[in-house]
Amino acid sequence: MSSCSCKGIRTCITCEKEGKIPFLDLQQTAWTDFSNHPNHEGDFILYPGIEIIHNFVSPDEEREITEKIYQTPFVDSQSGRRKQDYGPKVNFKRKKLKCDVFTGLPDFSHSLYKRMNDYPVLKDFIPVEQCNLEYTQERGSAIDPHFDDFWLWGERLVTLNLLSDSVLCMTKDDSPDIEIHVPLTRRSLIVVYGPARNIWKHGIHRNDITQTRLAITFRELSSEFQSQGPSAKLGQDLMDIALSFKGVAVGNKAV
């Protein structure tokens, strides 16, 4: 029996020590030192769909949020990560979800939500799911390039990056020789939308986790669950629950 939660091609240091063959990360040697890039000269490419809000929270706020997060137990996730989920129970393959285990976003996120709405890119953003993910170098934490689901989750993906700097790596299947590295500075909020959400896959490489990182990701509903969509009633129920800010992490509530 494996002592981690990795499935399929995904691995972490724990299961690799137990004999599982790691997925070959062809980008392990990708350059990430943003302070001393050797190739600033030359052509550039347009890359719409990323907005970074630096110092979205203060050091004192970061400390308070982190303390509250660690008061709740984590559950193991794939690729050497640990997580806390606040959101509906979803079966993405069958396109079904249940609200009965969803009690809302956690109370400490209320002030974060109100602050997000002060920025034009997030003025009408209503999160209905929050996932707190812990990455550590010791576990070899990472996440392979992927798209977040398009049936349930909407245009904007929002992540608050805490405890350390990291790098968000963007790739396209039809451009294997291009990788965009987006700096995730400590205490910054990153908004991914448009082409960066719909055309480019995003991931985190293992070698870009050098210290413990906490990522708080917020997701909004897709158009199917908005006011004119076929599942608008369910979408409104989810938004009402989420914005109660009385949530308990799904994995820590009896079902």
Rank of each mutant, 00 (worst) to 15 (best):
Q78C: 06
S79W: 09
S79P: 00
S79A: 12
S79H: 07
G80N: 05
R81F: 10
R81Q: 15
R81P: 00
K83Y: 07
K83P: 00
K83C: 00
Q84K: 15
Q84F: 15
Q84L: 15
G87C: 05
G87P: 01
K89E: 15
K89H: 15
V90L: 15
V90C: 12
V90K: 07
V90R: 11
N91A: 08
K93H: 14
K93F: 13
R94D: 10
K95V: 02
K96N: 03
K96R: 10
K96I: 06
C99R: 06
C99H: 06
D100S: 12
D100N: 13
V101F: 10
V101N: 11
T103F: 10
G104P: 01
L105C: 09
D107C: 05
D107Q: 05
F108V: 04
F108K: 02
L112K: 08
L112T: 01
Y113S: 04
Y113P: 00
K114D: 01
K114L: 03
K114E: 03
K114R: 07
K114F: 00
R115L: 00
D118L: 11
D118F: 12
D118I: 05
Y119H: 10
Y119M: 04
P120N: 13
V121A: 13
K123S: 09
D124N: 10
D124T: 01
F125E: 05
F125A: 03
F125N: 02
I126C: 11
I126T: 14
I126P: 00
I126Y: 14
I126Q: 04
P127M: 03
P127L: 07
V128M: 14
E129I: 03
Q130V: 09
C131Q: 12
L133A: 10
L133N: 09
L133G: 00
L133H: 08
L133M: 15
E134C: 06
Y135F: 15
Y135M: 11
T136K: 06
T136I: 03
T136G: 01
Q137K: 14
R139M: 11
R139E: 09
S141P: 01
S141L: 05
S141D: 04
